[in-house]
């Protein structure tokens, strides 16, 4: 039963999506059902958010309680979760849901701090803490690229040397000063790099991978729909 029901659901859902793809949404229910099912996914996803909150609270509070190494970071995570979530859910005015209860405790002028609007606690935390931290993480990528490139581009053998030469040419071509340098030898070099390396070899390899991946995804979808592949349930 625990295996049959999910397999039947997977088959019916898969077939609805496949058949619906070939029908016009304006003329038939089958055409509209694809959008309908995707909305269900979003709704189910919304409900499961609570699972995420429960997981994050359980795992982090356990570490804080046991005072394991780095517990202070787990405490910061817990505080952050509630600091972002609670003020954003509080009513903005007295007339909102639960507004009369909240504003019998807090002065009504505090309304602008709640919700997710401009000037709210959520907005302040997002703009001045969350966004800069995300940007910092993203900016660190430049240093990681440098260290990875250093290892990848070492001329250990003929293939690695070819990779190194190609990478140097592409990097030179991508920056104005490098392009000017390449033009000292011939005005055609940037065009050749674009035509033969980027739009030639690079695109050909990428398309090969994309075609293989698309076929692989389609094959796996078929295996799941037909109930042959059950490993996504931990079975088989």
């Amino acid at each position: 039963m625990r295996t049959t029901v999910p397999v039947v659901i997977a088959f019916i859902s898969g077939m609805i999506m496949v058949v619906g793809f070939f029908f016009n949404p304006e003329r038939s229910f089958l055409g509209r059902v694809e959008e309908e099912v995707l909305q269900w996914v979003t709704i189910v996803g919304g409900f499961t958010l609570l699972l995420g909150v429960v997981s994050i609270v359980r795992v982090n509070s356990k570490v804080v309680k046991q005072k394991k190494a780095g517990w202070i970071f787990n405490l910061a995570t817990l505080i952050s979760v509630f600091a972002m979530a609670i003020p954003s859910m509080l009513p903005v005015t007295k007339t909102s849901n639960l507004g009369s209860v909240i504003y019998s405790i807090f002065p009504e002028s505090w309304g602008s701090l709640f919700g997710t609007g401009t000037g709210s606690i959520y907005d302040w935390l997002f703009n001045y803490l969350d966004a800069p931290m995300m940007a910092t993480m993203f900016a660190m990528l430049a240093f990681y690229i440098a260290s990875a490139a250093y290892r990848a581009f070492r001329a250990r053998n003929a293939e690695a040397t070819l990779l190194l030469v190609t990478a140097v040419l592409v990097m030179l071509w991508r920056i104005p000063m490098g392009e000017a340098f390449l033009r000292l030898f011939s005005d055609n070099i940037p065009g050749y790099i674009n035509s033969y390396i980027m739009n030639g070899v690079n695109v050909a390899v990428q398309r090969g991978i994309i075609i293989g991946a698309a076929l692989g995804a389609a094959s796996m979808s078929l295996r799941i729909m037909l109930g042959i592949e059950r490993t996504y349930m931990g079975k088989g």
Partner: peptide, 24 residues
Amino acid sequence: GEELYAASSYLSREPVLLGGLKGL
């Protein structure tokens, strides 16, 4: 790419799943 999708069938070593890979 495709090796990612083939991984579960490959690791299971089940002939039926490997048949799907040959079809691919």
